[in-house]
Nucleic acid binder design. Sequence first.
DNA 1: TACGCTCGTTTTGTCGACAATATATATATT
DNA 2: AATATATATATTGTCGACAAAACGAGCGTA
Lengths: 247, 247
Amino acid sequence: MRKKADKQRESLAQADEDVVQAAESTVTDQEIYDRIIVSIMEHRLPPGTKLGEDKLAKIFGASRARVRQVLARLALERVVVLHPNRGAFVAEPTVEEAREVFEVRRPLEALVVRRVIEKRTDPRIIARLREHVQAEEAARAARDRRAIIRLSGEYHVLLAELSGNALAARLMHELTSLTCLIIFLYDAPSVPACRDQEHSEITQALADGNEAEAIRLMTEHLDHVEACLDLSRGRPEELDLEAALAG
Amino acid sequence: MRKKADKQRESLAQADEDVVQAAESTVTDQEIYDRIIVSIMEHRLPPGTKLGEDKLAKIFGASRARVRQVLARLALERVVVLHPNRGAFVAEPTVEEAREVFEVRRPLEALVVRRVIEKRTDPRIIARLREHVQAEEAARAARDRRAIIRLSGEYHVLLAELSGNALAARLMHELTSLTCLIIFLYDAPSVPACRDQEHSEITQALADGNEAEAIRLMTEHLDHVEACLDLSRGRPEELDLEAALAG
DNA sequence: TACGCTCGTTTTGTCGACAATATATATATT
DNA sequence: AATATATATATTGTCGACAAAACGAGCGTA
């Protein structure tokens, strides 16, 4: 059984103004991909939203086939799920999937930290990290929660890119996209001050070449983010359902 | 400039007999995917082979669009590369990419080992691992090099699946596919006895619940496989090219 | 009034056709 | 004879149209 809120969400109606820009003449697959995934990462397309092929095609001024390709790619990255004969929906990771993401990220991030420290002699490395941290602080100052969460994820992608391991960077991109979804699904709004200047501290440890400290900070950072989530109970919907049935 | 050998390889002609089965009436995407990736993992489709859409469509008795989808998926997994307007080719990982694969696998495999040890109370876990190791030994007894390499990869995928972390299992699938390609590209034929009973030893350590030993064995196993490769010099082709130019 | 069923509409899945690009062949030129 | 150019062929990229399935509305019945 579906809830009312579910059906409400299954529409692009409200999100249209945010996503629509113009029906450009020629738009590449990558642009469509980027626009959709950024919208998802910034929660303008909340989990569960139906991504109708025709609607997206009209919004982007592209053919349905092209949109379809992009949706297939997003599905492989688990950011959207495809229900056969029913269409594409923004993914709603389960608690179990959320735990798995953090479990995989921990050792991967540690690897990235080690490699970045090895390469820190190049001053551009630390410079770019500091630059990004500043952008994060700006978003935080502006109280732009969407940008904060997206930029938080992108910090880790940037770190992976700077590590020189392109494979790790690609995986980190996938994992941070999923992490954004997870945060929006499970983050307890009561703890907004979560993960504040931790990126800054990690950057400093990297600059100092203090590997043990950097890994410790990174691990605690991930622990912290995960601890902020309400992974004890099920998804919000299931919770609502339970509450409704109890009442 | 291309070499003669290159052009020779860019054809499915020789591999056809191995791959072709019949023009089945209905064949699912997953079947097409599996057939292609197993062929790649077993080196029946060597790196650099051109995967023409029409040819594959006829071979599988499917439409070109379907083949195209599968090729796109394989490209996202980096097992094939798509040259715009030129088509799909079995990937030829560079030395750098090979190193990255091992670098990412090391911490990921360690994670998997830890989780499997936690779950080893379920007797089916160790049983399935032993079963797989036996299959490997059978292939080794039969001197079936292709099956040996494929099964070696699948051992790690099985391990990841048994760890209970579906995300890790998916990543391991990708990484082992790439590892198969890498082994076929760079393995020094002079050292055929590489990685022999190591999977058996790892399984035993897991059964004993000896975490430190299992992780040590797994790490050394990966070190061993990587050390067997000729990653010092470039790809075989480049080597040939250099030699040809010198002569 | 509430439930179940049928029909119409919308959306997805699949395919074949056309256009654009790259490759290979043949011809002409230096 | 070798290179460059033009033509022909083959392969990929893109799109719109058709078929199938799911969804929603409306009707009928208990």
